[in-house]
Structure formats: structure tokens, C-alpha cells
Computed example of a mutant assay.
Amino acid sequence: MSMQGRIGRIGGTKVKRPLGVQAALEWAFRVERAQLELPVSKNVSEEGFGFGLEYVLLQRAALGCKVDGGQHKMGSYTHPDAEVIAAAVAGMPDSLGGIRMAISVAEMARAGITPNWMPGAVPRCVPVDMKRNRHGDRAVSVVVGTEKVLVSDKWRTIEVRACPVTWRPHPEQITSARRGYEDWWQALDWVQDGLVTGRMLRDVEVTAAMPKERPWTR
């Protein structure tokens, strides 16, 4: 059933379809295949990118509150609300990652995925390298020095060997992955706030539902 088929009316009032911001993004980019158009201004360089929702609203007003939904889909229809959602994402401010974050949010929504925050990851101390022979696996050791020992009344020089170890996954990898998730969450929070405040959607109502802010703390 199409979006239009799911939109009803009660007492002459249009009933909007409630969607959390992540679901709304996936609907816009994955189902409706909205395109991410990054605005370009003569007065703003790429390094200074960041238009915000005001740009989106002005552009919508300039179009007479109508978005051309078919310009990128070879004549097929894209719901106007999906175009507005895409335009809001395109206005991602620099403080939240600007162009790169806008592209990341759109691509993850198109793929229907969330950032990998490495659930269940626990750093473990493991050998840097392993060697396998007929007797099984063993850690590879390296010479770290020499020592003189007395053997049968004679001093001999022997190698001192140690097994290099590392942390896998490294704590910094886990921290980086979870920082990336938090950045994505902040971006979605900004998009949600803009869409709710802007009130530009006709058939979709963006709700307060959000992904968990820090799922690894539950």
C-alpha cells in the first residue's frame, strides 16, 4: 500500500503518518529514494558549509511550498515530504559535521543501518602473532635481550625472549566507534528538531522517538 493509501482523514482532518526520525530518514532515502542536494552559496565556501533549516524553509517558500519530487528519478514520483527531509539533512551545520555528516546520515538511512558501535566489544590481551605447526598454535616470541648464566661452571650467553602482546580490539577503536555513533545520534536529533519546528511536512509527523543515545550503557 502506498503512503497516500495509508494517510486517512478523521472528521475532515488529515491524519499524518507518525514516524521516528530514523524511520522517517529511511523512508525518505530508502523507500522514496530522495536525493541529497547539498546547497551551494556564493557567500559560503565548502569549508564554511552550514545552512540550517532556515535555508530549507526559504527554498521551499521560493518554490511556492511545492517541491519537485521527480527531477532525479527519471520521471518517477518522490513524495514531497521525502524531499523536505532530504533538504533538511543537506543543511547539516558544521558543528555537527556539515557535508560529511549529511552524506553519512543519508547513506546509512538508504542502507537501513546504524553506525557500528561495536556492541559487546571487550579489549583482550592477545599475542601479536601466532605460529601454527604440527603441535598446534603458539605465540611467536622475539629476542628482547641477552643474559649471562653459569652452566656447568661455564658462563654462557643466552637469549631472553618475550611474547609481544596487544589489545584486540584496541580500546581506542571502541572509543572511536562509539564517538561516531554519538555524532550520528546528535545529527539525527538536530534533523528531528528541525523537522518538528519547521512544520513543513504534509503527510508525515516526525515523533519524539529516537535511537538509544548510548546503547552500550544499558
Rank of each mutant, 00 (worst) to 15 (best):
I99V: 14
M210L: 11
K148D: 14
M210W: 06
V67E: 09
W185D: 05
E172V: 00
R100H: 08
R6M: 15
A24R: 06
V126S: 05
G97V: 04
S45P: 00
L57D: 12
A111P: 00
C163T: 10
G64D: 09
T207I: 09
R100F: 03
V21C: 02
G145S: 08
A90M: 11
M74H: 07
V165A: 03
M92P: 02
A23H: 08
E37D: 14
V206K: 05
A102L: 05
L38D: 12
M3P: 00
Q71K: 12
C163A: 06
G20I: 03
N116V: 01
T166E: 15
L53D: 11
S41I: 09
W185V: 02
V56A: 14
K212P: 02
H79N: 05
P115I: 02
V21T: 06
L57V: 13
Q59T: 07
P39S: 14
R218E: 15
Y181P: 01
V204W: 05
V143Q: 10
A121N: 04
R138L: 10
P127K: 05
S152F: 02
I85N: 01
G12A: 09
R124A: 11
V84G: 01
W185K: 04
I85K: 00
V122K: 08
M1A: 07
L188H: 03
A121H: 06
A209C: 06
S95E: 15
K154T: 11
T175D: 02
Y181C: 05
P93E: 15
S176M: 10
Y181V: 06
D137Y: 11
H135C: 06
G70Y: 12
S2W: 05
R132W: 11
L19W: 11
Q186A: 08
L188Y: 05
V40A: 09
A121R: 07
N133C: 09
E32V: 03
V143N: 07
V151N: 07
W117H: 08
V31K: 07
R17H: 14
G50C: 04
H72L: 07
K16C: 10
S152T: 03
P215N: 12
N116G: 00
S41M: 11
L63W: 10
K42E: 14
N116S: 03
S176K: 06
W155N: 06
D153Y: 01
D189P: 00
R218M: 08
A62V: 00
L58Y: 04
E172M: 00
Y55Q: 14
Q186H: 11
Y77H: 08
Q4A: 12
V67S: 09
V122N: 03
G20M: 02
P127Y: 08
G11K: 00
T157L: 10
M118L: 15
D137W: 13
V165T: 15
V40W: 13
L36C: 07
Y55A: 13
G97P: 01
S141W: 09
R138Y: 14
G194K: 11
D68H: 09
V31Q: 12
S152A: 14
L38N: 10
A187D: 01
A111H: 06
E107W: 03
R6A: 15
L201P: 04
P93C: 11
L96W: 06
N43H: 10
S95D: 15
M118Q: 09
G194H: 13
P169R: 02
A187I: 03
L58K: 12
